[in-house]
């Protein structure tokens, strides 16, 4: 009843099948990048990708996810390399950051289907609520990510996590590699 794939791994949740996916992800799988903001599908902070669609994870039960493929912000990429993530940093989109996982998942799902969306298509896809007011940068960042997907632009704005100290020291003269100490 509650067997499906989360970030390319098979999972069976031994929870009430009526549990919304959001809480299985957050409280059972500790995938806390997906946020709770309203529980009624209005804010979009809990948006995840289910079989290629951007879905409010507070609005689907784990029973309804049976056999499907769920991707969360943690599974979008392991190294922040998705063009949307890179464009989000290049255009300095996030402020408090709380709604941004949902925004990024919605934008990534949009671009997968249409790498060159119009303003109206972006507005229709991006119905997430942001209180900090990151909106003015979102259309631009999605367009930039689209250009990257279409091979028209390259960006390296956000470094991958887990850079080894020795590699960091090679790039930054002020740092010292561990063996030098």
């Amino acid at each position: 009843m509650t067997k499906f794939s989360v970030n390319d791994r098979p999972v069976e949740y031994r929870m009430d099948p009526e549990t919304p996916l959001l809480w299985a992800l957050r409280d059972a799988s500790n995938l806390t990048g997906t946020k709770y903001g309203c529980g009624t599908g209005e804010c979009g902070a809990c948006t995840v990708d289910i079989d290629g669609e951007a879905i409010r994870s507070c609005m689907v039960t784990i029973a309804e996810c049976e056999g499907r493929f769920v991707t969360t912000i943690e599974g979008l990429t392991r190294d922040r390399s998705h063009p949307v993530q890179q464009a989000w940093v290049a255009d300095q989109v996030p402020q408090c950051g709380f709604c941004q996982s949902g925004m990024i998942m919605a934008a990534a799902a949009l671009l997968r289907k249409n790498s060159n969306p119009s303003d109206a298509e972006i507005d229709a896809a991006m119905t997430n609520i942001c209180r900090c007011g990151t909106y003015p940068r979102i259309r631009g960042a999605i367009r930039r990510a689209g250009r990257v997907l279409r091979g028209e632009e390259r960006i390296a704005a956000a470094p991958p996590p887990g850079i080894r100290p020795a590699d960091a020291a090679r790039a930054v003269p002020a740092l010292k590699a561990p063996h030098e100490r």
């Binding site: 940093v89 996030p94 950051g97």
Partner: peptide, 8 residues
């Protein structure tokens, strides 16, 4: 920003 685009 990096931590705010990967959910960490």
């Amino acid at each position: 920003l990096p931590s705010k685009v990967d959910g960490s």
